[in-house]
């Protein structure tokens, strides 16, 4: 597989990522890029749809807002990789694989992100919802219990009936992080995903009667992992990210109106 071309000027910091993935990506120079990067502001869906129409093989959307999700064209759907700060961390995928066997015995589940004051709370919530769907599987409709500029609390249930609480809390006290927890009769699963600014690994711990296992750690930012995924999509893999986001969004009726 030859490396796919990227316009490294499209997004800040992209040149560094492309340079660090020489087998998958290379700078497009003045030629047309095969993989497009867009920021997830209001027009991302239209941009992604247009890019695919113009021949792009994959699109990476960074921190997407909800607006426009409905308008992603069917052709673009499977080519869009959503670069979530937390949910896209490889540790979340590793946790999801472990969680499958644990969900049935869950007593309670939690998801919490802490983000800084400059972060869009809605984007952080979407990120958390996607991570929750990945790790916790089927989730009931969620109810927004509280929402203000300091954060947001939602509650619902896992498929097996265990209570689920999701929260976004805004603070500049410490670096951003996400924490997911699935508590079972014997132990459970703990997932710590660090700030997207660092390649420090997510830590996924699985506890049972024999002790606790730390899954192998991967030192990579979620952003770099997404650009790797985008190269796979460009090579023919189908991305399920849009479908997954739609599912996550459907869990919170009225989320469309929570915008802003």
């Amino acid at each position: 597989m030859s490396a796919f071309t990227v316009d490294t000027r499209q997004l800040p910091g992209l040149a560094e990522i492309v340079a660090s993935l020489p087998l998958s990506l290379r700078d497009a120079g003045n030629g047309p890029p095969q993989i497009i990067g867009v920021t997830g502001t209001g027009t991302w869906a239209a941009q992604a749809t247009a890019a695919v129409r113009n021949g792009a093989l994959a699109i990476v959307v960074e921190a997407p807002v909800l607006a426009g999700l409905k308008n992603v064209s069917p052709a673009a759907q499977s080519r869009v990789v959503l670069a979530w700060d937390f949910a896209a961390n490889p540790g979340v995928h590793a946790a999801a694989a472990e969680a499958e066997a644990l969900r049935g015995g869950a007593g309670i589940a939690k998801g919490a992100v802490t983000v800084g004051r400059s972060t869009d709370i809605q984007v952080a919530l979407l990120d958390l919802l996607v991570a929750a769907v990945r790790v916790f599987g089927e989730i009931s409709t969620l109810t927004v219990r509280h929402r203000d500029h300091h954060g947001l609390y939602l509650t619902g249930h896992l498929e097996g009936g265990a209570p689920l609480t999701l929260s976004v809390v805004v603070t500049n006290a410490y670096p951003f992080a996400m924490h997911l927890r699935l508590l079972t009769g014997e132990g459970g699963l703990d997932v710590h995903v660090p700030s997207p600014a660092t390649a420090a690994p997510a830590e996924v711990r699985v506890a049972d009667a024999d002790g606790e296992r730390l899954l192998p750690t991967v030192w990579v930012t979620s952003r770099r992992a997404c650009w790797q995924d985008a190269a796979a999509v460009a090579a023919g893999a189908r991305s399920g990210d849009i479908a997954e986001l739609r599912r996550a969004v459907s869990l919170v009726p009225g989320l469309w109106s929570l915008q802003g």
């Binding site: 309670i108 609390y153 929260s167 603070t171 014997e186 132990g187 459970g188 506890a207 009667a209």
Partner: peptide, 23 residues
Amino acid sequence: ELTGAMHEGWKPDWTFEAIGPDA
């Protein structure tokens, strides 16, 4: 947020957190 759970496992977690805008 108050969370309490007693389970059959061995692993405890007893944590109190107070979070403000800057600290």
